[in-house]
Amino acid sequence: MTDFILISMFLSFPEAIIMLLIGLKLCSIRINLKKVLLISFIQASVAFLIKLTNINFGIQSIVQIITFWVLIILILKMKSYKAIVPVLIGFFIDGIIQQLIISIANNFIKIDFSKLSSEFEYTFIYSLFILSTSLFVLLIIHKTRFIFCDLSVEGEVIGEQK
């Protein structure tokens, strides 16, 4: 239980922040930090609750995508068909990074995924790698100002402009 709380506090929460920022940045949406923190905190709490239910990893991800989507609609007051875009982008990039880390851990360091998800030390290191890689991706997106799909130019006010 303590492990779950620790993971949610120190890993799921920052992971949600980075995932949200990646999704929003790639859609050219700027929101203030308070809203980012609020969405990420609720998302991390949801992730924690989902982990407690011990359901399958894939279903956990789908539930998290849906909650993230609902949170963006409610907090950023975005249209539902627009809100899904940054959510899916964020999850997709996070998923790619996770796959990459798992592949490296599995093939080069020879650590099995079951160990990564069950043992706290391994989970912590694994999540730390994911976080740092995600942060690196976010920095690249920020520096290059790369935009995948501009949602801010459609005349709709999305969140608060900084």
Binding site: N56, G95, F113
Partner: peptide, 18 residues
């Protein structure tokens, strides 16, 4: 995006499932 994300999720599930 759903298609790509779904593939990633299925992939993760296969790896995660014992």
């Amino acid at each position: 995006l759903i298609q790509s994300t779904l593939l990633i999720v299925i992939n993760c599930t296969i790896i995660d499932t014992s």
